[in-house]
Design a binder for these strands. Sequence first.
RNA 1: GCCGGAGUGGCGGAAUCGGCAGACGCACAGGUUUCAAAAACCUGCGCCCUCACGGGCGUGCGGGUUCAAGUCCCGCCUCCGGCACCA
Length: 873
Amino acid sequence: MAEAKQTYDPATIEPKWQAFWREHDVFRARNPGDPDFDPRQPKFYALDMFPYPSAAGLHVGHPEGYTATDIVSRWKRAKGCNVLHPMGWDAFGLPAEQYAIQTNTHPARTTAANIATFRRQLQRLGFSYDWSREISTADPKYFRWTQWIWKRLYERGLAYESNAPVWWCEALGTVLANDEVVNGRSERGDHACERRPLRQWLLRITDYAERLLADLEPLEWSESLKTMQREWIGKSEGAEIDFDVLGHAGTRLRAFTTRPDTLFGASFLVLAPEHPLVAEVTTAARRAAVEAYQKAAAAKSELERTDLAKDKTGVWTGAMAHNPLFAADDPRGRIPVWIADYVIVTYGTGAIMAVPAGDERDFAFARKFGLPIPAIFAPATSDAEADAAVARGERCCTAEAPYAAHCRTADGTLALAGRSLADAKRATIAWLEARGRGAAKVTYRLRDWLFSRQRYWGEPFPVLHTADGVDLVPDDQLPVELPVMDDFRPGGTPESPLVRAREWVETLDARGRPAQREVNTMPGAAGSSWYFLRFCDPHNEREFCSRAASDYWLPVDLYVGGTEHAVGHLLYSRFWTKVLHDDGRVGVVEPFRKLYNQGMIQAFAYRDARGAIVPMAAVKEDGDTAVHATTGEPLERIVTKMSKRYGNVVNPDQVVDEYGADTLRLYEMYMGPLADSKPWNPKDVPGVHRFLQRSWRLAVPEFPEHGPIHAWLRADRADEPALERALHRTIHKVDGDIERLAFNTAIAAMMIFVNEATKAMERLSRSQLLRFSQLLQPFAPHLAEELWARLGGEGLLARAPWPAVDAKLLVDDEVELAVQVLGKVRTRITVPADAAQDVVLAAARRAAAAWLDGKTIQKEIVVPKKLVNFVVR
RNA sequence: GCCGGAGUGGCGGAAUCGGCAGACGCACAGGUUUCAAAAACCUGCGCCCUCACGGGCGUGCGGGUUCAAGUCCCGCCUCCGGCACCA
């Protein structure tokens, strides 16, 4: 044994090609105006949801979407596109700050270290990112423009200050985010928390609700995602109706309803406990009860008020109101005014007209408190018993139903009997409008975006507070950088730790007068709401992104990421894009043309008889079964998410160390459809690795003395026809599969080709292997590049065009058909591909004679190139 | 409760427009090679009956449409995701 074998060794070839690509600037995207820009090329913008660089490093979930976009990017380049495929860091945020508090290190330092780890890990995977466009949201050169965009929002009247409630935890001395509070107690330490109003910045995203809804329609997003956004925006059409409060001349309560047609059945009003008119209308006798109820409601979170509190609660204010449909002296028109926490102050007008006969919630409330349930429907369905109950006011009816005869005003100007639901709504609104008692109204569930945090590690607002009010920092003085602090712990008040940076806070305005800097910082979603724009023009020091660059690159052609951003990030980015469009700074109104959600990569875990998950360290696996390592108890295998606690987290670095980046990429794509959640199975990884080894061996001899490639590949030879057909079929299949993001089946097709080629290895030509390398390149770029180089391919494979398909080679001369009798496959025939129908039938009859014997053929069905079916009796 | 998505061999999955269910990979079994092992290569592999030939059953469950259903329709069950007193 003299020399080492030339086996497939990713540890050697992967770093080699990564360095080569970097040194030759292979993946640099050209902007219009750049020296090598080619205007004839179509553009393609492939974007990943950029990661938050956590201390834990890259997770195998990250490279799933990243590999998908990388495959598409490399394929689009091969197809002649100018591809923008960038990567960056969503670097501001709470975890870095928490970590900083625990370890007493500055978040800027930990963030920089985490970014370095993420970058190193990503670069090991051979992604074709244009690293010259790398950005970080925490970089002053970046957040300068986040602040600048915020100023445009402010100037357009879309940013405002308001007192909004925040979670304050006395014991921890800090403000907490919604997801840090569970049932009114802090997640950390389980301390009591309360809602406190605090001055906050908000963005008027509600002004864009209708456009955010309407512009969703043409986007290539999954229906489920569009539905989630639609429901989040929550458009409802209805009416606002004014009710006079008896004994309070001039005070009217305005209620929003989607069912103005049920106004005849309104038997009480309900205000949210926080409604501003509660104090005014409450009578002296009821004041104590009302205030006690308000206090109790304030202590509850919104979750408790909705999810947990199914049982209706409420108190009467002592006030009476008047239903405008009835005459002043009609007792039916006198209705009590209650407060109850099932009415939410931030939705609609914070007040409802309660119609127990037509609304389940109002019905339950009326039943509980003995309030009247005036019947308004006379239904006639197949369920006579239910109909009678509705007519008696003993049952609630939310479906469309005929109106009772008494649904009419005394003067007959409004009568609903005989009208459809839509018609009755229209008629009621028209009647109210004519009398100045109400109007049609559209309401959205979407609320304004709470756009400030009482935290250190975020973008400072470019805002000064002076004696005259809010003053903006001039554009030429941006960015407003964070002060250097060595203690950013919460300070025992709900305010941001920035208040302690006295020298930073106390400053002068443009005219030299004393001013205080805004101490709130922007939320994590600020920087991520426009990063796709900065990628188009990342080094521009005069603009956030030149109009020429965004006009060229936008919209993003393919955006891949997890569903967790279905409403937040995607809605905010759409909003900012529209605002920048309205400001004339961006051409498009929608940033992401096609969006695809990858599934979650899960892992196996083992559960004992009690259902508790046993950490992997205590599990002994043996083939198909597993037992507890110490007790020997048999365990059940389940699929769940990866978690440190279960010890089932897969580290991509380890996979790369053992098998190489190409194997990791390939396995992640081979596991199953991109959109599905699927478990990581370590036993399956060697399968795709073997495929890469087999591909390698098609070109490279085992022993170096036989040269860098097999002898038969060095001579120019004609392509073997069967292999040539197989190759063309594979190219065609892989091409179509990448287009529809079906990477798992594309890989299967390449495996089939390699299996066939292995069996006829010495008949394979150099040209065929070169073209196979081109196919493999998007998936396993390092191996493919190495094969290409060894085979003497021209230039770099990363820049080579996609191989051509000859349509003539996709069709076979002969085809095999299934022959069915009564739908069951009985036998098969082989016929020329272009055989006439009667020839096929004759052959099929002959082949199926045994099953047709003694039967009468009633029908013969021929599906060309598929099957023949005889229907017999 | 409402709205999505899914359910296919021992496992991950394939079947793109109603046309041969189980491609491809894993696991498993047998074989070749080897002093041996690993690796590699070859063969088999849905379930049941059968020495075999062959046959029956089979895509969560129950019905239906069709020459033909994993795919379409109706009614259920289970799992996953989202929303949840939004008037």
